[in-house]
Amino acid sequence: MSNKQLSTAILCMAFAAMVACKAKPTDTQIQAKVSEQLSTMPEVTADVKDGVVTLAGNVADDATKASAEATVKSTEGVKSVVNNIMVTPAAPPEPPATTATNTADDTLRTGVTNISKDFPGADIKVDAGVITVTGELSAAKWKTLKQALDALHPKKVDASGLTVK
């Protein structure tokens, strides 16, 4: 077979494949349609394989879950729908107090990091605005450390686990 005949044959095969595609929507085409139909539900994702659509994501209620499945089922070329959508009621907003404490803890931790390198005998931890010091320090060193820690405005400096020499 000459090169010319070969390329003609390939072209024919390619054309035949395209015609076949027209007759039955490909997964890619189904995917495009399904995505379009689900555009009002951004929290739902769809995956198409051999005409089977798998839905996933998180929605607030059962009605939305059922509606997503119904919408997709009617799409041309869809053989079946696997509905893996999870129903998670909207989480209540996090209490602002917690966030404030966390931010405060970050500020405290930065301050503690700056200070702690000069006090190798002490282990300093920050939690919920409270600085906890454990380990062993000389009285003079501990006084310097306590002054530096108090200047960070913690809720409390807990040194009950500290040994002062």
């Binding site: 009285a139 501990w142 006084k143 306590k146 002054q147 108090d150 200047a151 405005h153 913690p154 809720k155 409390k156 400096v157 807990d158 040194a159 009950s160 500290l162 002062v164």
Partner: peptide, 10 residues
């Protein structure tokens, strides 16, 4: 030795 932990002084 400031061990009571009942004061924060700045």
């Amino acid at each position: 030795n400031f061990l009571s932990g009942d004061v924060v002084m700045d």
